[in-house]
Design a protein around this nucleic acid. Sequence first.
DNA 1: AGATTTGTTCTATATTTTATATAACAAAAA
DNA 2: TTTTTGTTATATAAAATATAGAACAAATCT
Lengths: 126, 126
Amino acid sequence: MYIKLDPQSDFPIYSQLIHQLMEGILKGDLKEGDMLPSVRSLAADLGINMHTVNKSYHELEKRGIIQIVPKSGAVVRLQQAEKESEHYTRLVRELKPVLLEAMTLGMGKAEINSLVELLVKEYKEE
Amino acid sequence: MYIKLDPQSDFPIYSQLIHQLMEGILKGDLKEGDMLPSVRSLAADLGINMHTVNKSYHELEKRGIIQIVPKSGAVVRLQQAEKESEHYTRLVRELKPVLLEAMTLGMGKAEINSLVELLVKEYKEE
DNA sequence: AGATTTGTTCTATATTTTATATAACAAAAA
DNA sequence: TTTTTGTTATATAAAATATAGAACAAATCT
């Protein structure tokens, strides 16, 4: 699975890594139950620090996407996000400002929905 | 127009201010052509630094939402975001990771769309 | 015209976040 | 048993965030 990081991006490295790993899951490169590479080996592969990878993994765990087994490794464990769950709440908190921006740029409900559909399709066809 | 800032938020103050001002525009508190308060007066009202407000204003200008007239003030000037415009491109870049998160949380196209509709309605009924 | 307010620019400082670097530890895995 | 694992700790550096104060010229107000 290929991971691309851009040091010049607005997003910090650990965020980019989170995004790439989520992409990998959605594309099927990583499936439920799969082990993620160890923080040391992935850091070496990507040419970044171990702690940066570690931060990404723990953030993914906080988001309910992987499970970290102490002294062992990280496993893909997708959780269903119930409404009112902390995962769902955080998602809404992150989604709001982006929608605000879309609306101030003149996009309506229909336009936003078609954009969302377009982007969703890039990762998963249903 | 009431503006609420949370120093403990994950979002920096200047980002929160950007969001609140966008909300004000969408709710109709600020209309096309309206002047924004001066950076000094708004900073004083909110109990934050002048330069922080200034940063928010310039970011809003970069996003095509207001126009800053040198030595005069800031005016609401909503631009239509054409596809392929830098505004549209940035929006997509910000929207992608949020959608990735939604999908890894198990949400499908329909679920995401209904959430988007729900949030959009909070600001603007069409 | 004169006084005030405006955004702008500059320097300075402090805190937080991000990223890297080393080292050591105990538990798990090979 | 040797290696690898995540964890924890300390340390450093750079960037982002936020505040502070001062000075300037243009715009606005009285």
